[in-house]
Design a protein around this nucleic acid. Structure first.
Length: 586
RNA sequence: CGGGGCGUAGCUCAGCCUGGCUAGAGCACCCGCUUUGGGAGCGGGAGGCCGCGGGUUCGAAUCCCGCCGCCCCGACCA
């Protein structure tokens, strides 16, 4: 039993200004965490208890899935990350430091390298595989902008597991075991989730899925179809329509379109001056966006991306599509250096002939949206100030240097697997399972002998759950205007007993009740504070969010108390000698 | 890293524009009395490098310069 009169805790009556997100605000106010720096938090007793309960759920399911717990330091030497290339790839995203001898170290953002080396150290035969090992460890990332408290912190706790197999089939099975464990974990944590196809990101690899918790405060956008398709928008692939025969299509015509440097102005001009059965729309236009790529070796390259005019380049999708190069906007200077491209009127073709694509006169790569298939007809820039070309046919008048899938995704777009139109929602990444394949094993030299005595490169998976982020996600999902409403599985206590009034006999009865409840194995937070008014105690109980509250006060000497359900708000008068039984019933 | 905002007591904020007594309020905290079923009342008290450094001035929380930190939006990331 923990007595509130003794607990290292102070609740705040006012919302801290710095906290916007509900989880951040409530965890601060209810005294679970305190800010220690930007994106850095101290854990108070209440917060630690919840953290440990979440970790316990995770540990149980990891054990059930056959994974074994180990623990690495958070501080690691540079060398393994140098070998994998991530020392460089992470750029400013990690904390780097030097020891007194000047040797580079880092605060680990994730531990693939050292787990790989540990297995290399311990394992030499296929007989010792497969194995899945995990840890619950703090990770460090030098976020440019930590936000929303625990949702994006610079130090956060993560359960990261790594599987090691000899065969692809083995990896698939290890992956599935973790994926199944994740489903059980999130069910137990009371977190709704959607499993979406993810981008493979920094680590390469074959297959990757994210567990996204749908919420408005989520930083990811994902799509879903009624037919079961689900993907992060970064991983969404656009379905290309079939090609259209263009044998009888009319010749392209260049027209004067003064003062039409944007899609909106162009469409308005076309509708005013160029008759057609259907009104012109942005979807009839081909928008050509100049992007500046920065490659790994530091070289800069301009590319032009052609997408339907009713869409934008989605920067996140572009980063993925052009990875590992960084994507930026082209500057005025870039355009000035390429007089063939006229800002506001860029297109693959001009009256003088092709400008971009296969017969390019600019030397700039021209990549097309998958929807720009052969035979489609477009209204697009003619590379002259105030002129556009109407009826330009893909495959006849211009051919791109390839396709690129970077256009924004919209609700209603068809899922690539044919399962129907998609909807778009926001979600928070609460878990990530990933078939890494052999990248790390290859670069770090992890091989084992197979049955025939030959060396085989091991294939790996990595599986992460952000413990502290999940804690915040749970608060986001389980709170009301009065405070937190913890799911029972991870609440800091099972029961919150509130003694009210100033009658010592009442407090003695409450004390006895607490002992009786604890005898059944339930953990109790006991508000035994003397001289604190009932209103304050009730408010604190609601703020702290223990699922069930027992009030011992008015009526206690007649053997009556109250049992409150924090989640439903139900309040029932119960006989004190029946409280234990009622709590056990659930 | 771009845009916006803010640094005054544990929390929320006033004071700054227009420089001037000992720097304020509410909440929280301590003592006493009263009160005890929804953030109680009265009285007393403790608590401040007014973010840091420099400058202007007889005098700076207030004006000027520089720096640092934090929050929010965006970009980047679990």
């Amino acid at each position: 039993m923990i007595r509130l009169s003794q607990l290292f805790l102070t609740t705040l009556r006012d919302d801290p200004v710095e906290a916007e997100a509900a989880s951040h605000r409530l965890l601060l106010r209810a005294g679970y965490i305190r800010r220690a720096g930007a994106g850095l938090f101290a854990w108070l007793p209440l917060g630690l208890r919840v953290r440990r309960r979440i970790e316990e759920v995770i540990r149980q399911e990891m054990t059930a899935a056959g994974a074994q717990e180990v623990l690495f330091p958070g501080l690691l030497p540079r060398e393994p990350y140098e070998r994998s290339g991530r020392w460089k790839a992470y750029g400013d995203g990690i904390f780097r430091l030097q020891d007194r001898k000047g040797a580079d170290h880092l605060l680990a953002p994730t531990h693939e390298e050292v787990f790989t080396l540990l297995v290399q150290d311990v394992v030499s035969s296929y007989k010792q595989l497969p194995v899945t090992i995990y840890q619950v460890q703090d990770k460090y990332r030098d976020e440019t902008r930590p936000r929303a408290g625990l949702l994006r912190a610079r130090e956060f706790t993560m359960k990261d597991a790594y599987s090691f197999d000899v065969t692809d089939e083995g990896l698939a099975a290890s992956y599935q075991a973790q994926r199944d464990a994740y489903e059980r974990i999130f069910q137990r944590l009371g977190l709704e989730y959607v499993i979406v196809t993810a981008d493979n990101g920094l680590m390469g690899g074959a297959k990757s899925e994210e567990f996204l918790h749908p919420t408005a405060v989520g930083e990811d956008a994902f799509v879903q179809s009624a037919g079961g398709y689900a993907a992060n928008v970064e991983a969404f692939t656009t379905l290309a329509p079939p090609a259209i025969p263009f044998g009888d299509a009319a010749e392209a015509v260049v027209r004067d379109t003064p003062a039409t440097p944007t899609i909106d102005t162009l469409v308005a001009h076309a509708n005013e001056h160029v008759a057609r059965d259907e009104p012109w729309t942005a979807a009839d236009t081909l928008k050509n966006v100049v992007l500046a790529l920065t490659h790994d070796d530091g070289t800069r390259e301009l590319v032009v991306v052609g997408i339907p005019g009713d869409r934008d380049v989605d920067e996140k999708r572009a980063e993925v599509a052009f990875a590992p190069a960084d994507v930026g906007q082209a500057t005025e200077a870039d355009l000035a250096a390429n007089p063939g491209l006229v800002k506001g009127y860029i297109g693959p073709w001009s009256a003088a002939g092709p400008v971009l694509g296969e017969q390019s006169t600019t030397g700039i790569r021209y990549l097309l949206d998958p929807r720009v298939v052969e035979g489609t007809t477009w209204l697009t820039g003619a590379n002259e100030e105030g002129r556009h070309v109407f009826g330009l046919v893909a495959g006849r008048d211009f051919v791109g240097d390839g396709t690129i899938d970077v256009a924004s995704v919209r609700a209603g777009d068809p899922a690539p697997d044919g399962s129907g139109p998609v909807t778009i929602e926001r979600g928070m990444e609460i878990g990530h399972v990933f078939q890494l394949g052999r990248f790390f094993a290859e670069t770090l030299g992890l091989q084992v002998l197979d049955e025939s005595g030959r060396l085989q490169t091991v294939t790996m998976g990595s599986y992460g759950i952000g413990v502290t982020r999940n804690l915040a996600a749970i608060v986001e999902a389980h709170h009301d205007d009065k405070g937190i409403v913890w799911p029972r599985e991870i609440a800091p206590f099972d029961v919150h007993v509130v003694a009210t009034g100033r009658d010592e006999a009442v407090f003695a009865l409450a004390e006895q009740l607490v002992a009786d409840i604890e005898a059944t194995g339930l953990e109790v937070l006991f508000d035994d504070r003397p001289k604190v008014s009932p209103g304050v105690k009730f408010r604190d109980a609601e703020l702290i969010g223990v699922p069930r509250v027992v009030v011992v006060g008015r009526g206690a000497t007649e053997g009556l108390g109250e049992l409150w359900d924090r989640a439903t708000g139900e309040r029932a008068e119960v006989r004190l000698d029946e409280v234990v039984a009622r709590l056990q019933q659930g």
